[in-house]
């Protein structure tokens, strides 16, 4: 898959072609990006078939919303990923993931795997990347909370539970963690 070879400029050009009704441009985006987008969605919904549904819905949304993209809204890639992430989060919040979990044992098993998934996303960052260095500078619980939310789609309540913190504490730690991160990355 040539995903890494395509620049955000090419992606932006394809998105504006899609806004003009160009299906081939949508197909180009799909061919280059779908594999990674499914993987990103799967980190959140935790099931491959649901992740594929997420990407299917997302591409229909991209077709409909491409005209809304402008560089003011950040990078083309960020915009594209946000559509997938939001769809995945909505499916998650609708409770589909829970419905499909089969009993506590399985959940515990998947929970352990999921922690791996979340932490591996961070350690896979290049050591010279600013995000990596800034996450590294955070106190561990804050870093973990932020990664659980962004990578795994955990809610405040789930994070508080996993980190054995009162909800209010978890919220304020994450909020302060995010503020430190913004400062570090500015």
């Amino acid at each position: 898959m040539a995903a890494a070879d395509r620049t955000t400029e090419e992606l932006a050009a394809d998105i504006s072609a899609v806004a003009q009704g160009d299906r081939q441009a949508l197909k180009r985006i799909f061919d280059a990006e779908a594999g990674r987008l499914i993987a990103i969605a799967e980190r959140i919904v935790r099931r491959r078939d649901l992740a594929e549904d997420v990407v299917q819905d997302a591409f229909v949304a991209i077709w409909q919303k491409a005209h809304q993209y402008s560089p003011d809204r950040g990078s083309a890639r960020g915009w594209l990923h946000a559509i997938v992430r939001n769809r995945a989060l909505n499916i998650l919040r609708d409770g589909k993931r829970e419905d499909l979990m089969d009993g506590d044992a399985l959940e515990t098993l998947q929970e352990a795997d999921q922690t791996e998934v979340v932490m591996s996303a961070w350690t896979a960052l290049d050591s010279h990347q600013r995000l990596r260095r800034c996450l590294e500078a955070l106190e561990e619980t804050r870093r973990r909370g932020i990664l659980m939310a962004y990578v795994g789609g955990y809610s405040h309540g789930e994070i508080a539970g996993r980190l054995s913190l009162p909800l209010g504490t978890a919220k304020s730690w994450i909020r302060r963690g995010l503020a430190s991160l913004r400062e570090c990355m500015a």
Binding site: M1, A3, G35, R36, I38, A39, I40, E42, R43, R48, H81, R85, S120, A121, W122, A124, L125, D126, Q129, L131, R132, L147, Y150, V151
Partner: peptide, 9 residues
Amino acid sequence: PLDMTAAPV
């Protein structure tokens, strides 16, 4: 960058 660490499937 965190998204980009997801290996395409």
